[in-house]
């Protein structure tokens, strides 16, 4: 039996896009995932980090037997998701954030209890666990509330409880903290960590586009963009590769149309990106050698751009992302298609 909780080989997914009535003739294909090779060991908390449209949800759908891959294969809990979905399903569970699902006419307890029964759990054990888990996310006083009377965030908490309730071998959480407030996000992260620590054979895969969440929570992170896995390692190792580099933030006067990416032509300047801040711009620089900073300042001076503030800092996952993709994830999302 394989030691891996999740294993994929050259996994790919192409969507056929059908146009509306007018454009029915036009058929396009969209590559949502391409050549994904991942292994997640049992006991790991694995994070998928990527901007909107990167393919995170698509990957989770394939791994949870909701969607067929168009190339390659994937195994979850040692079973092939395409060939034996019926062997995968009893061993997994999944929750997607940012949607409010559930039967509004049923109470929180009834919704959760019903799912536990579909999984063949003992009814008494299930009711105990429901109480326990609801307490952990601070929802215990709503146990008898009809789920239609819950706010979107509270409903999401209920759904997260549904995921943990059946105690799966592998749990998939698609953006579990999306739309939750700070406190609720903290509760959920605590629940995640606690669940994994209590039993070392449990595995959890989550997607997020919060860098901090990936960095603080995950044992390993795969950075994914445009359907491809660009890097996969522990957050520390990912950052370590940048450790030799120097990372500077430079606040300047307005750039007046000048593009900072031209800085990358300078020797030892690996990446340069900028974004607007009040009263000017903020440049983020990844330099292979600290000495390259002198050149950068020179260029700025020539362009009549004033340096207001200069800070050196430790690399973050955000820098890793910028190094791999060439743009800040936040900026990509603002300009994103969805």
């Amino acid at each position: 039996m394989s030691n891996y909780a999740i294993e994929t080989q050259d996994l790919g997914r192409v969507y056929k896009i059908r146009g509306n009535k007018k454009e029915r003739a036009i058929r396009k294909e969209l590559v949502a995932l391409e050549g994904v090779n991942l292994t997640v060991g049992r006991g790991e908390l694995f994070g998928l980090l990527g901007p909107n449209g990167a393919g995170k949800t698509t990957l989770i759908k394939i791994l949870t037997t909701l969607l067929a891959p168009t190339s390659g294969w994937a195994r979850v809990a040692a079973h092939d998701v395409s060939q034996s979905p019926h062997l995968v399903r009893p061993r997994i569970n999944m929750v997607s954030g940012g949607e409010s699902s559930g039967y509004g006419l049923l109470t929180v307890r009834e919704n959760l209890w019903m799912f536990s029964q579909f999984y063949g759990m003992n009814s008494k054990v299930a009711n105990e666990r429901i109480k326990e888990l609801l307490k952990m996310v601070g929802l215990e006083d709503r146990i008898h509330t009809k789920s239609s009377d819950l706010s979107t965030g509270l409903r999401q908490k209920m759904n997260i409880v549904r995921g943990f309730l059946t105690d799966p071998e592998v749990l998939f959480l698609d953006e579990p903290t999306l739309g939750l407030d700070v406190g609720a996000s903290r509760d959920v992260r605590k629940l995640i960590r606690g669940w994994l620590d209590a039993n070392k054979s449990r595995t959890l895969l989550l997607t997020t586009h919060y860098m901090v969440e990936a960095e603080e929570l995950c044992d390993r992170v795969a950075i994914i963009n445009k359907g491809q896995v660009l890097a996969c390692d522990t957050p520390a190792n990912l950052k370590h590769k940048l450790q030799r580099d120097a990372i500077f933030e430079v606040e300047t006067s307005p750039l007046n149309g000048w593009s900072p990416s031209t800085l990358e032509e300078q020797p030892e300047v690996r990446k340069a990106a900028s974004r607007q801040i009040e009263g000017g711009s903020k440049l983020e620089l990844i330099l292979a050698e600290e000495s390259a900073l002198a050149n950068v300042i020179n260029v700025l001076t020539q362009k009549n751009i004033k340096v207001m503030r200069l800070t050196k800092r430790e690399p973050t996952l955000e820098d890793v992302f910028m190094d791999l993709v060439g743009a800040r994830m936040e900026d990509m999302e603002q300009g994103g298609e969805e």
Binding site: T64, T65, L66, H86, S100, S101, Y103, F115
Partner: peptide
């Protein structure tokens, strides 16, 4: 109810 996917991946 947006629950079909959760029913679908359940062992039922």
């Amino acid at each position: 109810y947006k629950t079909l996917k959760y029913m679908y991946i359940a062992p039922i």
